[in-house]
Write a protein that binds this DNA or RNA. Structure first.
Lengths: 120, 120
DNA sequence: TCAAAGCATAGACTATACTCTATGCTTGTA
DNA sequence: TACAAGCATAGAGTATAGTCTATGCTTTGA
């Protein structure tokens, strides 16, 4: 598919998709059978990849982190073991982030208590 | 205390503290008994407040969001009920963020499965 | 007492992640 | 076939959150 379809199907603007592509998060391919233009083709599998990028960004991962993860994940040179290590490292990061969220939640709950006791 | 002590005790640089103060996250007071300078005094209670700012930032809250929350929380004009509402709203946001984290975690776990099955 | 360290304000600079504009070529449709 | 819409690259502009520099006054300690 071309970039505008990718944009429609992922909900990410064409501009942003181009930015991501230049950043190195994914790559479209020039269709070599067509010589009159240099339009890029984007693979069906990118839809899922871009959904992951969106979600990862929303939970605060930087593009740089996402890039590193994707590069490991889809690197055919990398051993299965190394890929799993990269993914597991991210899962551990997520777990510690969740812990941090719970800590802030606790602070806010304590804040509610303080307000109820007229301490604020 | 003066700003450098506040910096040491919170681990936030003097520059960043000034940035936060100008942003409106908290306020130091000029000591009116001293007329030779305009050094600002920072209250002991700010330490906890700044810890909260740090944690909230680390979990992805913007300074603008943090400002709004603190303004409600420590606004003496605001009713107890409204304060609790503001705090509860943030707690709900945190819960939905945690859900989102778990969703990304699930994606990564599925990624590990795919790698193990040779799908990547 | 005088120099270093600390305080204040103001403004310039940086990084990240977009977002938009300009320009030019290609494609598709009335 | 003409012209709007789509594609591409390049580069400028924006918002957030710092981070740093300049300047000048004040305090403190050898």
């Amino acid at each position: 598919m071309l970039i505008s379809e990718l944009s429609k199907r992922t909900g990410v603007s064409v501009h942003t998709l181009r930015y991501y592509e230049n950043y190195g998060l994914f790559k479209g391919e020039n269709n070599k059978t067509v010589k009159t233009n240099n339009y890029k083709q984007y693979d069906e599998s990118l839809i899922e990849k871009i959904q992951l990028i969106k979600e990862a960004k929303e939970i605060g991962f930087t593009l740089s982190e996402i890039k590193d993860l994707l590069e490991d994940w889809f690197n055919h040179q990398l051993s299965e073991e190394k890929k799993i290590q990269a993914l597991e490292a991210k899962i551990i990061e997520i777990d510690s982030k969740i812990t941090q969220f719970k800590r802030v939640k606790k602070m806010l709950i304590e804040g509610i208590q303080d307000v109820k006791e007229g301490k604020c």
